[in-house]
């Protein structure tokens, strides 16, 4: 049995005809050839597969492609290109926000959507007061990014890059 699904990825519509078991991650990588999103653990623990759906970051390994008919999907390929990096990508390059690079597209998708959560005023587990203004401290960045692991432990560079990109974002 296969299912027909229309996936809207980086503003392009793709018709998919796949086994219902196909995870969104496998659909992106194997059916659409968008290999920027990575498969690390395939169980939602590492964050390498993070993409943005309807403006919110999720683990693409823990959802089925057929559940996302018509949703607006953004992958790392839609965030920037080598010729035109997004501010977050540029900050990761300038601040050594990676070493081997395997987790990086997940880190960047996650961080990009995380800044929107901050703009929307969402508190985190380390936010002192649930109501009122938010300050994106390094502790806030680490807490909000805990769903993205980096085995090379480039965390200091990652936090620095996100801090810098968040400031550019405010300009």
């Amino acid at each position: 049995m296969t299912l027909k699904t229309t996936l809207t990825v980086n503003d392009q519509e793709h018709d998919l005809d796949a086994d219902p078991r196909t995870s969104l991650l496998d659909a992106l990588r194997h059916h659409l050839g968008l290999t920027g999103s990575k498969k690390g653990c395939d169980h939602g623990q590492c964050g390498a597969c993070t993409i943005i759906i309807n403006g919110r970051r999720i683990n693409s390994c823990l959802t089925l492609a057929c559940m996302h008919d018509g949703d607006k999907i953004t992958t790392i390929e839609g965030i920037g290109t080598p010729e035109a990096l997004s501010a977050m990508q540029d900050a990761f390059v300038r601040n050594d926000g990676f070493q081997c690079g395997y987790c990086t597209s997940g880190q960047i998708c996650s961080a990009t959507a995380m800044l929107d959560e901050v703009k929307d005023g969402w508190p985190s587990n380390v936010t002192e007061a649930l109501e009122g203004d938010l300050e994106l401290t390094d502790a806030e960045i680490s807490e909000r990014m805990s769903g993205n692991l980096c085995r090379c432990s480039a965390y200091p560079g990652i936090v620095k890059a996100i801090r810098e990109a968040s400031k550019e974002d405010q300009r």
Binding site: G44, G47, S110, N125, G147
Partner: peptide, 10 residues
Amino acid sequence: LAGASGQLRN
């Protein structure tokens, strides 16, 4: 907010 990760909570 003490549970899971940002991606999972979404």
